[in-house]
Design a binder for these strands. Structure first.
Lengths: 133, 133
DNA sequence: GCTTGACCCTGACATCGTGTTAAGGTGCAT
DNA sequence: ATGCACCTTAACACGATGTCAGGGTCAAGC
């Protein structure tokens, strides 16, 4: 299977397939005489696994860990669970940070009449030297 | 004022002050005979404004817009409010996406006993070809 | 056989915000 | 005058991805 088909079958762009190969996230596939990459079904499954993990917010290095655990006879489900919970906590922290920024902006906006005069508490607040609200 | 003092006074790292100058986010400061950058209080205020906006989650290009509005005699507070509300919405969308990923992970983890056996619904789910839960 | 268009190859540059490091010049206090 | 803290520019790196350029390959239709 050529890279284009593998890309469509796995949901990973051609660009990223080549990238994952370069950083050894996936093993180099077979090559035809022409030099074209030739992917097996197992290769495509691996790519699909990576795409799914990426969609769950895992970084490339974490995907590397997960790929190592995937199909490892000696893995324990505790290993995987710990990874998932740690990632969940990290995502939670990021989401909270964004929500806090959003709340600050909405608070500022609520104090701004929004008319065509220049007075604007948003700008005033951003310009303040004593940073905190 | 040298760049180190300006950095401490504004909360922008020296690295980023030079970067902001290179991308014309801030005007080039005066130079001493030695070539050292020499910042005025106005320069520092501008940097501080940028730092505050950055902390609120604005991108460099958005900070450029805000700097244009800051001190613009003809600005309307509606301009600024629209920018703030658009940014708040964007932050909200990002936060929701992270929260959704987090929920998926927690859901998977709750179905994983976490013991020392290899059975693991997390891995099984990530490996599935029909992506969606 | 030849052309055409779709596909593939590698390599390089861009993004965004920031860190780090290297190799050198300056300013000031002892 | 020595040393240390500070400044200068420039370059390379991250992480994940896009895009472009300049080429080779393959299969189908003429």
């Amino acid at each position: 299977m050529n890279i284009g088909s593998a890309s469509r079958a796995s949901g990973v762009s051609e660009r990223m397939i080549r990238h994952y190969e370069k950083i050894s996230l996936i093993p180099p596939p077979a090559r035809r005489d022409s030099g074209y990459r030739d992917y097996s079904d197992a290769d495509v499954n691996r790519l699909h696994f990576a795409a799914n993990a990426r969609d769950l917010g895992f970084s490339v290095e974490e995907i590397r860990q997960l790929l190592g655990l995937w199909g490892d006879e000696h893995r324990t489900s505790a290993d995987v669970k710990a990874l998932a919970l740690a990632k969940a906590e990290e995502l939670g922290r990021k989401a909270e940070a964004l929500a806090a920024m959003r709340a600050s902006l909405l608070d500022l906006a609520s104090k701004c009449h929004g008319g065509d005069r220049p007075e604007c508490p948003i700008i005033d607040r951003i310009a303040r030297t004593d940073s905190k609200s």
